[in-house]
């Protein structure tokens, strides 16, 4: 059994916060490069190049890719061989977020009360999701998602007999509703099944999957492909000024659900999809 202490967690989370915010994910960079090649609208092409420039500058200057360094969301997968006895995991993670955001000169964007909104905002708390599954080791992933796109999240509770076309229409409508506002080209995370809360979480988790991978389920992979094609016909394009690059990828996760329901959640990510992960064996 491995023993994990709070100092290891704190340091790892701090590092991940900085890493995610400053270095654009490799798969996202690759997707932008591919989009530049396939884009036919010259202005859209230019904006896409600007986004790659932005990624280069962020890394060179050690500065955040985007001023909205998000509400850090932390996914923790705790394997059965990991001993966390006596460890205050919550505290270690929140302290790690504070350290990382302070050290990385990231933005303090969190208000402790959603209605009173005391000022100035703070670095923490982030949102933490724990998962005790059939894993080995410990994996921590930080997703500092900005709120321009988080505000575009939608959930719809469908009935079980609804035609698949209706579900597709809904997912595409969420992208169209986002329009030029949430920094297109988007990455579209979709959660289908489970309960309402689980569907929303799945939609967000879907954003963690590398963009060059598709679902391992055949019917879902084909749904992803079809959605991507249709979304890229919407002519929203980079900055919302048109072009065939409206989405860099669609990722769908599913879960078992109830005989009476079919929840579908959509989590929109801006093109600056940021996450970083560490694995302890």
């Amino acid at each position: 059994m491995k023993k994990i202490n709070s100092e290891i967690i704190r340091r790892a989370v701090a590092h991940l916060c900085i890493e995610a915010n400053i270095r654009l994910r490799k798969d996202v960079r690759a997707a932008l490069s591919r989009a530049i090649k396939s884009e036919t609208n010259p202005r859209a092409k230019r904006f896409l190049s600007q986004l790659l420039d932005n990624a280069r500058i962020a890394q060179a200057d050690k500065i955040a890719l985007c001023q909205d360094t998000g509400l850090p969301t932390v996914f923790v997968e705790i394997g059965r061989d990991v001993n966390t006895q006596g460890l205050d995991m919550d505290r270690a993670i929140q302290k790690g977020i504070e350290d990382g955001y302070r050290k990385g000169f990231l933005r303090n964007s969190i208000v402790s009360d959603p209605l009173l909104r005391p000022q100035p905002p703070k670095f923490s708390p982030g949102v933490i999701h724990y998962d005790f599954g059939l894993y080995r080791g410990l994996r921590i992933t930080v997703l500092p998602k900005g709120f321009g796109c988080e505000n575009k999240t939608q959930l719809k509770m469908f009935t079980p007999t609804v035609p698949l076309e209706e579900i597709k229409k809904f997912i595409i409508s969420v992208v169209k509703d986002s329009g030029p506002d949430a920094c297109p080209p988007y990455v579209v995370g979709v959660g289908i099944g489970g309960s309402a809360d689980q569907a929303v979480l799945l939609a967000k988790k879907a954003l963690l999957r590398p963009l060059d991978k598709c679902s391992s389920l055949k019917h879902i992979a084909s749904l992803e492909k079809d959605l991507l094609k249709k979304i890229n016909q919407a002519n929203i394009g980079p900055l919302g000024l048109g072009g065939r690059t409206t989405s860099l990828g669609v990722s769908v996760l599913t879960a078992p659900t109830h005989i009476a329901g079919l929840p579908v959640a959509v989590s929109i990510s801006c093109h600056a999809l940021r996450s970083a992960s560490v694995y302890f064996k």
């Binding site: 050690k62 500065i63 001023q67 909205d68 360094t69 000169f105 933005r107």
Partner: peptide, 22 residues
């Protein structure tokens, strides 16, 4: 419409793109 990240020593400003105007 912008809320920059904090400014690191020796720099002019932090990351400073636009936020949603709506």
């Amino acid at each position: 419409y912008c809320g920059p990240t904090r400014t690191a020593p020796g720099r002019v400003v932090g990351s400073c793109g636009p936020t949603t105007s709506a």
